[in-house]
């Protein structure tokens, strides 16, 4: 009896300790483990927030089968950097939402964060952010891709993003005529 009781108490203590842990462990599709601040994860990811609130976080590593280790490392890196950065006035939401621009400009550190990524790493991060419901990271990564497209012709976009042209000349001309308002000045 005595022993059992002691064991029960230990179990209790362990559970309490788990609940109090301030990090969560995430596991990538290729089995690598990453630790991330629980607070930052819950604040930045609606999916992780739901899992933390629902108690479905696994201490040995919560499986995120859809996210590769490189993308997950970037996600975790972003969360940690975000936790350490001081939000600018623009990010503190005002109760009147008359935003003309529906998208908020990335912060300086967020720009640097995405600037160092390869194209493929960036695209993977877009998908990871979308999967985890990380609105802000999705915003920042999509913004980065759009920056790379801005002011470029279809030919230049194909070149930058390594996209194969499967149009015939005639098809391209047809599109230009159909969308004359977009391709030609009046």
């Amino acid at each position: 009896m005595e022993v059992d009781k002691g064991k029960g108490e230990a179990e209790e203590t362990r559970k309490v300790a788990e609940a109090d842990r301030d990090t969560v462990t995430l596991k990538s599709s290729d089995g690598k483990l990453f630790e991330v601040s629980k607070e930052a994860a819950a604040r930045l990811s609606t999916v992780l927030a739901g899992m933390i609130a629902g108690g479905s976080i696994d201490d040995n590593g919560t499986d995120l089968k859809q996210i590769g280790s490189e993308a997950l490392e970037n996600v975790v890196d972003y969360c940690n950097k975000h936790a350490n950065s001081i939000p600018s006035a623009a990010l503190i939401s005002s109760s009147i939402s008359f935003n003309t621009a529906p998208f908020k400009e990335p912060e300086e550190w967020e720009r640097k964060f995405v600037d160092r990524l390869s194209h493929d790493a960036l695209f993977d991060l877009v998908e990871a952010a979308n999967f985890l419901g990380m609105e802000r990271l999705l915003d920042v990564t999509c913004h980065k891709i759009s920056e790379m497209m801005k002011g470029k012709s279809p030919d230049q976009i194909r070149e930058v993003f390594n996209i194969k042209n499967d149009y015939t000349k005639e098809e391209l001309e047809e599109i230009r005529q159909e969308l004359a308002w977009a391709f030609y000045d009046d």
């Binding site: 529906p102 998208f103 877009v126 998908e127 979308n130 999705l138 999509c142 913004h143 891709i145 759009s146 497209m149 801005k150 012709s153 279809p154 976009i157 194909r158 996209i163 194969k164 042209n165 499967d166 149009y167 098809e171 391209l172 599109i175 230009r176 969308l179 308002w181 977009a182 391709f183």
Partner: peptide, 24 residues
């Protein structure tokens, strides 16, 4: 759905429409 998000951030529908010339 993610490319739509990218295109929306081009700032103007005109720029987005011009990407129709990239590929089918």
């Amino acid at each position: 759905e993610l490319l739509h998000l990218v295109l929306a951030r081009l700032g103007c529908l005109r720029a987005a429409a011009r990407t129709s010339g990239v590929s089918s």
